[in-house]
Simulated scan of single mutants.
Amino acid sequence: MTDTVSFGYEDVAPTEKTARVGGVFTSVASSYDLMNDAMSGGMHRLWKDRFVRRVKPRGHEQILDMAGGTGDIAFRMAVSGAAITVADINPAMLEVGMERAQKRGIDGLVWTEANAESLTFPDRFFDAYTIAFGIRNVTDIPAALKEAHRVLRRGGRFFCLEFSTVTWPGFADVYDAYSHKLVPKLGQLLARDADSYRYLIESIRRFPDMPKFQQMIGDAGFVNTSVEPIMGGLVAIHSGWRI
Rank of each mutant, 00 (worst) to 15 (best):
A74K: 00
F163T: 15
G134Y: 00
N90R: 04
F75N: 06
T4E: 13
P91I: 01
A19H: 08
P229T: 14
G155V: 02
T15D: 14
R150F: 00
E16Q: 13
D195P: 02
R242D: 07
S80Y: 05
T70D: 13
Q62A: 05
G97D: 11
S179W: 01
K181W: 15
T167S: 15
K17T: 11
S30K: 14
S80V: 04
D219T: 13
G8V: 11
A87T: 07
M93C: 08
P208C: 07
V5F: 01
R198W: 09
D176C: 12
V110T: 15
R50G: 11
I84Y: 04
S40L: 11
G81D: 12
D209E: 15
D88W: 02
F25P: 01
G42F: 10
G233Y: 05
K103L: 11
G155R: 03
M231S: 15
G22P: 06
G232S: 13
I63G: 04
H149G: 03
G69D: 01
D49L: 11
G108N: 06
Q188L: 12
G105K: 05
G105S: 06
P91Q: 00
A87R: 04
R76G: 03
L190E: 07
L46G: 10
S6W: 13
I141Q: 02
G221N: 08
Y9A: 12
R242A: 02
D193R: 08
D11L: 09
M35Q: 06
F125D: 09
A148F: 07
F7R: 01
N90S: 04
V227L: 00
R206D: 09
G8A: 14
T4I: 13
A191W: 00
D127P: 02
R136N: 07
G218M: 13
I201D: 05
F158I: 02
S226T: 08
V24K: 06
V227T: 05
K185V: 10
A29F: 01
V110F: 06
R76K: 09
Q102L: 09
H44Q: 11
K212N: 03
R157G: 13
R58L: 11
V79E: 14
P229Q: 15
M77P: 03
G233T: 10
G134F: 01
N137T: 02
H238W: 08
R76H: 07
K17C: 08
R136Y: 09
Y129C: 05
A143C: 04
A116R: 00
T4C: 14
A92N: 06
R153M: 10
D3Y: 11
P122L: 04
V174W: 13
P229E: 14
E99Q: 15
A116C: 07
G59D: 11
F25K: 04
P208S: 09
I141K: 01
V28I: 15
A114V: 00
E113W: 08
F163D: 14
L234F: 15
Q62G: 03
R54E: 14
A114Y: 02
F121L: 02
A177P: 11
F133D: 08
M43K: 13
F213P: 08
K48V: 00
D49H: 11
T15R: 11
T139S: 06
I217M: 05
V12M: 08
L34C: 05
